[in-house]
Design a binder for these strands. Structure first.
Length: 108
DNA sequence: ACTATGACTCCCA
DNA sequence: GTGGGAGCCATAG
Protein backbone atom coordinates (compact mmCIF):
# COMPACT_ATOMS: atom_id res chain seq x y z
CA UNK A 1 0.00 0.00 0.00
CA UNK A 2 2.75 2.39 -0.82
CA UNK A 3 1.78 3.25 -4.33
CA UNK A 4 -1.92 3.67 -3.80
CA UNK A 5 -1.34 7.13 -2.49
CA UNK A 6 -1.52 8.56 -6.00
CA UNK A 7 -4.44 10.82 -5.25
CA UNK A 8 -6.25 8.01 -3.48
CA UNK A 9 -4.47 8.66 -0.23
CA UNK A 10 -7.41 10.57 1.15
CA UNK A 11 -9.80 7.83 0.24
CA UNK A 12 -7.61 5.27 1.93
CA UNK A 13 -7.41 7.38 5.02
CA UNK A 14 -11.16 7.80 5.08
CA UNK A 15 -11.59 4.09 4.76
CA UNK A 16 -9.33 3.52 7.71
CA UNK A 17 -10.99 6.17 9.82
CA UNK A 18 -14.32 4.58 9.12
CA UNK A 19 -13.00 1.44 10.80
CA UNK A 20 -12.75 3.22 14.11
CA UNK A 21 -15.68 2.05 16.21
CA UNK A 22 -17.81 4.40 18.21
CA UNK A 23 -16.45 5.17 21.63
CA UNK A 24 -12.86 4.78 20.47
CA UNK A 25 -10.30 7.14 19.03
CA UNK A 26 -7.16 6.83 16.98
CA UNK A 27 -4.22 9.03 16.13
CA UNK A 28 -2.78 10.46 12.94
CA UNK A 29 0.46 8.60 13.44
CA UNK A 30 -1.36 5.30 13.92
CA UNK A 31 -3.11 5.72 10.60
CA UNK A 32 0.07 6.85 8.91
CA UNK A 33 1.94 3.85 10.23
CA UNK A 34 -0.82 1.53 9.19
CA UNK A 35 -0.66 2.97 5.68
CA UNK A 36 3.08 2.48 5.68
CA UNK A 37 4.01 6.12 5.46
CA UNK A 38 5.23 6.17 9.03
CA UNK A 39 6.02 9.83 9.37
CA UNK A 40 3.19 10.91 7.15
CA UNK A 41 0.89 11.88 9.97
CA UNK A 42 0.71 15.34 8.52
CA UNK A 43 -0.69 14.05 5.28
CA UNK A 44 -3.32 12.22 7.29
CA UNK A 45 -4.12 15.50 8.95
CA UNK A 46 -4.71 16.97 5.54
CA UNK A 47 -7.10 14.20 4.71
CA UNK A 48 -9.03 14.94 7.88
CA UNK A 49 -9.04 18.63 7.22
CA UNK A 50 -10.50 17.96 3.80
CA UNK A 51 -12.94 15.37 5.11
CA UNK A 52 -16.22 16.10 3.48
CA UNK A 53 -17.62 12.59 3.79
CA UNK A 54 -20.38 12.50 6.36
CA UNK A 55 -19.69 8.86 7.14
CA UNK A 56 -16.10 9.54 8.16
CA UNK A 57 -15.81 10.05 11.91
CA UNK A 58 -12.96 12.50 11.61
CA UNK A 59 -13.73 13.59 15.16
CA UNK A 60 -12.36 10.27 16.41
CA UNK A 61 -8.94 11.11 15.05
CA UNK A 62 -6.78 13.02 17.49
CA UNK A 63 -3.15 13.81 17.99
CA UNK A 64 -0.77 11.30 19.51
CA UNK A 65 -0.94 13.25 22.75
CA UNK A 66 -4.70 12.99 22.76
CA UNK A 67 -5.11 16.63 21.92
CA UNK A 68 -7.80 17.55 19.43
CA UNK A 69 -6.00 19.80 16.99
CA UNK A 70 -7.51 22.09 14.43
CA UNK A 71 -9.45 25.29 14.73
CA UNK A 72 -10.65 25.76 18.30
CA UNK A 73 -14.26 25.83 17.19
CA UNK A 74 -14.04 22.65 15.18
CA UNK A 75 -11.95 21.01 17.86
CA UNK A 76 -14.52 21.89 20.47
CA UNK A 77 -17.28 20.39 18.38
CA UNK A 78 -15.34 17.17 17.99
CA UNK A 79 -14.58 17.14 21.68
CA UNK A 80 -18.26 17.40 22.45
CA UNK A 81 -19.07 14.58 20.05
CA UNK A 82 -16.43 12.37 21.60
CA UNK A 83 -17.69 13.03 25.09
CA UNK A 84 -21.16 12.11 23.91
CA UNK A 85 -19.78 8.82 22.66
CA UNK A 86 -18.57 8.01 26.12
CA UNK A 87 -15.00 9.17 25.75
CA UNK A 88 -13.64 11.23 28.59
CA UNK A 89 -12.67 14.60 27.20
CA UNK A 90 -10.97 17.27 29.24
CA UNK A 91 -10.18 20.62 27.67
CA UNK A 92 -9.92 19.15 24.20
CA UNK A 93 -7.80 16.30 25.50
CA UNK A 94 -9.03 12.73 25.20
CA UNK A 95 -8.00 9.71 27.22
CA UNK A 96 -6.04 7.66 24.73
CA UNK A 97 -5.13 5.08 27.34
CA UNK A 98 -8.71 3.92 27.62
CA UNK A 99 -10.06 4.59 24.14
CA UNK A 100 -7.16 4.11 21.78
CA UNK A 101 -7.83 1.91 18.77
CA UNK A 102 -5.49 0.89 15.97
CA UNK A 103 -6.72 -2.53 14.91
CA UNK A 104 -7.56 -1.56 11.36
CA UNK A 105 -8.31 -3.88 8.53
CA UNK A 106 -7.51 -3.11 4.93
CA UNK A 107 -10.32 -5.16 3.44
CA UNK A 108 -13.86 -4.20 4.15
C1' DA B 1 8.37 21.77 -12.13
C1' DC B 2 9.25 24.11 -7.77
C1' DT B 3 8.18 26.19 -3.49
C1' DA B 4 5.36 26.84 0.46
C1' DT B 5 2.12 25.15 3.95
C1' DG B 6 -0.16 22.14 7.48
C1' DA B 7 -5.91 18.96 12.07
C1' DC B 8 1.84 15.87 13.13
C1' DT B 9 5.96 13.47 15.48
C1' DC B 10 10.30 12.52 17.16
C1' DC B 11 14.85 13.77 18.92
C1' DC B 12 18.02 16.52 21.34
C1' DA B 13 19.30 20.44 24.63
C1' DG C 1 10.19 16.78 32.58
C1' DT C 2 9.87 20.68 29.38
C1' DG C 3 10.88 23.29 25.39
C1' DG C 4 12.58 24.12 20.92
C1' DG C 5 14.02 22.62 16.28
C1' DA C 6 14.28 19.52 12.22
C1' DG C 7 11.97 15.86 9.47
C1' DC C 8 8.42 13.68 6.34
C1' DC C 9 4.18 13.04 3.36
C1' DA C 10 0.83 14.83 0.31
C1' DT C 11 -1.64 18.87 -1.59
C1' DA C 12 -2.19 23.55 -3.39
C1' DG C 13 -0.55 27.64 -5.68
Amino acid sequence: LRKNNAGNFFEIVYKVVRQVPKGKVTTYSAIAKYLGVGRGARAVGWAMRDCRHSDVPCHRVVRSDGFISGDPESANERALKLSKEGIEVKDNFVDLAGSFYDNFRLKT
